[in-house]
Design a binder for these strands. Structure first.
Lengths: 226, 226
DNA sequence: CATAATATCGAACGTTCGTTCGGTATTGTC
DNA sequence: GACAATACCGAACGAACGTTCGATATTATG
């Protein structure tokens, strides 16, 4: 989960030595993992600190040695997950040249990470608006950063191919397709990450790579007013 | 909201006369509307009965005259919303002949209703898995009914045009696009229901109406393994 | 106008909530 | 092995939770 040096509850006192810090972070990581499971099962509000205590095999009071509040715990989970997926996609984008391939890399990275870390990503999606004030703003900023990466990939694609489509709607539609799937994906029925990425990529990419011009409506047909 | 004869809390005793029943249902409808607002703002678990009492201007105990539990309240909101949107789409589909037009009608109905009833639909989406046991099964059954309508529209389209695409993934991608948008839609920035339906319809429909055959991957390009 | 049914309420019930306190094990350092 | 820092815990705190009870207004019906 790559929690290195999260330092959830150290600031006032002198930092401890290296090995102690490492063991602290390792233990905190375990707690975060268990908390992710519980938040995934019961939702943030529905999960109690006693649930977390039970799941992580640590006493209720003992948990507070590692973080100062339930809110901070959700914040740490969301931040770690977001940062990791952003780091990974940037790493992978470094080797992609073709604009369309780069969009596929983004999709494949997102779905691949989602499938491999279903619970954490579900908590990220489902508790999207749960955090308020400071923590909420920080997470929102990271989310914007991630959104912007995707937006720029699509803008590049538009430029390179001379396409015309509303980029904002396209980005958010893509995120919708990808993020919604935690509500239905069944590993026994549905394809794996690679096939899923190809399928969704096909739908999305051929959806936006229509040639420019016209009303943007297929064969000029207009939907009935609703 | 069309709550007619919901009868949230009547079964044992003889049913009251028409006018009394009507006033009961009207009041219950008001409570459901206020509860929808509160659930939208704070989430189901995060909203307390005292919040609902404050929002609807009725005492805490008084609420229980109209329904027997907080759970039932969410159930009533979800059932009413679902039934209404299903009724409407079936009404509108009755006049559509062309398979593609029918898919557009479905999209336009969903987004149009979503925009006009943003809070109720958000509660439907966000509290997707909140209800357990009996209530949960009932809502899940209605959801399957709605899913099936959309699936059959896409199967019809496949047949009519000789297309090849994974219908299940397509349906769920479409629902993803449409349902995710409550997390980002801003009426001051984003288009209205009609334009939004056209844009999403364009992306989705030209996404799935690629000609059949081949790997299903654009220009044979394969995404890097993740 | 009496009377039954409906609508509404203040107060309380028992439970669970997130968090804290004071303390004891356990561990690392010299 | 002494000593300080770290890790952990049982018990409790006050607040908030969903729900119920007994009673009183309000309304509809004869």
């Amino acid at each position: 989960m790559a929690i290195a040096a999260i330092s959830a509850k150290r600031s006032a006192t002198r930092l401890p030595t290296g090995s102690a810090a490492r063991s602290f972070d390792r233990r905190l990581g375990e707690i975060l993992r268990h908390a992710t499971d519980v938040f995934y099962e019961k939702g943030y509000e529905g999960a109690s600190m006693r649930d977390l205590s039970r799941a992580s095999g640590m006493s209720l009071a003992g948990l507070y040695h590692y973080f100062e509040s339930k809110e901070k715990l959700l914040y740490l989970i969301q931040r770690t997950t977001f940062r990791t997926i952003i780091d990974r996609v940037q790493e992978r984008l470094a080797v992609g040249k073709d604009p369309e391939e780069r969009v596929r890399i983004f999709i494949s990275n997102h779905l691949g990470y989602f499938l491999a870390n279903k619970k954490a990503m579900s908590v990220l999606s489902h508790e999207d608006d749960t955090l308020k004030n400071g923590y909420g703003q920080e997470i929102a900023a990271i989310k914007r950063e991630y959104y912007r990466i995707c937006l720029e990939l699509l803008e590049d694609l538009k430029r390179a191919k001379g396409l015309e489509f509303p980029a904002r709607i396209a980005v958010l539609s893509l995120f919708g397709m990808m993020n919604w799937f935690y509500t239905w994906h069944n590993p026994r029925v549905d394809a794996d990450a690679e096939a899923l990425s190809r399928q969704m990529g096909d739908i999305f990419l051929s959806g936006i790579t229509r040639p420019a011009g016209g009303t943007g409506n297929l064969r000029g047909r207009r939907p009935r007013k609703v």
